[in-house]
Design a protein around this nucleic acid. Sequence first.
DNA 1: CACCCTGTTTGCGCTGGCGCAAAGACACGT
DNA 2: ACGTGTCTTTGCGCCAGCGCAAACAGGGTG
Lengths: 229, 229
Amino acid sequence: MQIPLANLRKVVVFQNATDEDLNQILRASALRQVEEEEYFFLQGDRAEHAYVLTEGQAKLVQSNPQGQVVNLRTLHPWQLFGALGAVRSQGTYPASAQALVDSSALAIPSDFLREMLVNRPQLSMDLMQLMTGYIQEMQSRYMELATERVEQRICRAVLRLAAQSAEKVDDGIELMLSREDLAEISGTTLYTVSRVLADWQRRGLVETGRERVKVLRPHELVRIAEGLP
Amino acid sequence: MQIPLANLRKVVVFQNATDEDLNQILRASALRQVEEEEYFFLQGDRAEHAYVLTEGQAKLVQSNPQGQVVNLRTLHPWQLFGALGAVRSQGTYPASAQALVDSSALAIPSDFLREMLVNRPQLSMDLMQLMTGYIQEMQSRYMELATERVEQRICRAVLRLAAQSAEKVDDGIELMLSREDLAEISGTTLYTVSRVLADWQRRGLVETGRERVKVLRPHELVRIAEGLP
DNA sequence: CACCCTGTTTGCGCTGGCGCAAAGACACGT
DNA sequence: ACGTGTCTTTGCGCCAGCGCAAACAGGGTG
């Protein structure tokens, strides 16, 4: 196993774990490689592992019987995902995890993680901390979806992504994602996203390209997100 | 304190607690009475207590700066609420809890609950169980809001409420809530709710009245919720 | 019984956003 | 360089749902 402990400790939930615990986790787990577009797991699968992304990028998506898809969140290295199954024994994943580029992740057996939680209060508290964060984020996004118009929601999505996962280039912040990705994230259609971005570009707020959005005037976008003219 | 232990054990998170633990909780806590329309706590308040509803009915709502409101869930006796603050020390409530009728709830100090969690693994696991449930429910509702039309969403809301909190009367299931309540829950307006219910009534699926909806043909409603004609 | 308060219904007009379809732009492989 | 596939843009028509405003209904109170 070639994952250094120091890296594993970047996982927020493991930040307070002992070296011995981390070693145990490494011994119990396996590294899984998944190619671009492929899945770590599918919604409805038996949740036999929790994962820690070690390399690449992935997204958690939920789909309905008609095949429509919404993006729940984007995953970056050293984030934990698929962990709900560790709590509910015999549970199934409520969402699918799809690699956006060739990626790898550490697969930790759910049973193992659950047993570990039972006698490590600090670990449990840290995991709860993570869960409360999700609950709050989902509640916020739910309200945004219920009360805000499309332009504001796209704007929030762009700002959120810019804040967490973007490369700063000379004169702006660059995001690598397609119109369709943005549509999934903000709960609309690729057509509407395209129109909104075109409008922003005319107004000089962003610069767009194929699977690329460069934010030029973040401050202006914040105003749009707040619902101001 | 006049709350019998047997009742406190109805709280899902406390189902596996010892009598001694329950007694300790009772000693540390106070009973708070809140009149109809009043609040147990407001969104943004410092989260100094977690609550267990002991009597009455309440709702958890989130509102945005413009004052628009969405209903996150309806609370019934022996349900825990406001508990996210117990995990994040120094945190604030992400939503408001408003009494729908005169109600009372046991106010458990967050600090006390947090200390208790630290050395009671089973309690932590049960709380996590509850949290994963919320996460899944919020994810589902988020997807429904993003992908389904209004009629389906209202339908789901009615069925959900009918399943959990309704009185069966002779020839149907009766819900006591206003058009506006239903609008908050399903993320639409009272006008649209009124029109949809009127339509269902014409088709004999429900019978409506002032702050009252009686489900006559649940099976038909299920078909609507599924998106079938 | 008359009154009032609160909740409900419904006509009407409007518009935000959807989604098809066709054309355009870009990236990549051969 | 050329073709091919994917992503993006945009014209166009359409309609679900919003929200005002006004009328209506029920239930409680004096």
